[in-house]
Amino acid sequence: MTQTSGTTPPETPTVEPSVAGLATMGTPPGGETAPRRGRVWRRLRRNPLGVVGALILAISIATALLAPLLAPYSPAAVHFDAPFQPPGTVGFGLGTDDLGRDLLSRILFGLRASLEVGVLAVVVALAVGVPLGLAAGYFRALDAVISRFTDLMLAFPFLILAVGLAAIRGASLGNAALAIGISQIPGMIRVVRSETLRLKELDFVAASVVDGAGDLSVLARHILPNALSAVIVQATVAIPVAILGEAVLSFLGLGIQPPDPSLGTMLAEAQQYAARAPWTAIVPGLAIVVVTLGFNLFGDALRDALDPRGSRR
């Protein structure tokens, strides 16, 4: 437990012998002298779970983009003669729903809508939350204002925000994403603020200030890169939350408009038939799980790859 300082077998005694043998546990040898971008990429590739996550995401994104080409039917195409076909039925690989719509086609298009909402919402949260979080953590004078603003946003009911937004700008997928993104801003601010508060007290920040580094330079060069791990974790958690949040809004008619599908709406619609045709819920549910898993695995791997200290648990 106390054995954390030295990590190498001793070298032959010279003035600075240990420099030669400094390859540390968990750091792949050979990755040391490569340029930084190459090193991050190499370490990303070396993490098997990260590769799985990246593959899941790549396939999800590709199928979502290529949905019009891949889908056997239009997602809205109704087959009244074939409702509730189980998966494996000829012509309907994943089965059909209550209106006889092909689940495979709906999943492909639904994936597209859900990814859009997830990414869009998190981009909104990042774009607003990260700068405000940095400012709140770094500038004492702004902290009170921004923190009160955060509390206010947290207290403001998410649904009322979404209804209000829909009333002003109309109900659409984009507006649902905006509403979800706004609701995720306080969480992002808090995470970034607390990281900033911790980091700005460290001596390397003080050393920079002594050498005349400006506030923006300290934030950009020292604080943001070190806060990145926390931001990535927060973002990968936020995307699945956004995908599910979209289901709620769409269920209330504030998000995507029927008959267009999203994974969330498919799951929501399926609940009334869950006993009779469980696959109508299982298929979109599974899709959500797989996409979520993809984001989490990839996010963790990215965090580890960006951290020069290597993977830590």
Partner: peptide, 22 residues
């Protein structure tokens, strides 16, 4: 004292200070 304290997985049949010892 040049060098670092080693972290040992097994205790060798040797003096563990030998690599740093004059």
């Amino acid at each position: 004292i040049p060098g670092l304290v080693p972290v040992l997985t097994v205790q060798p049949d040797a003096c563990t200070f030998a690599e740093r010892c004059p």
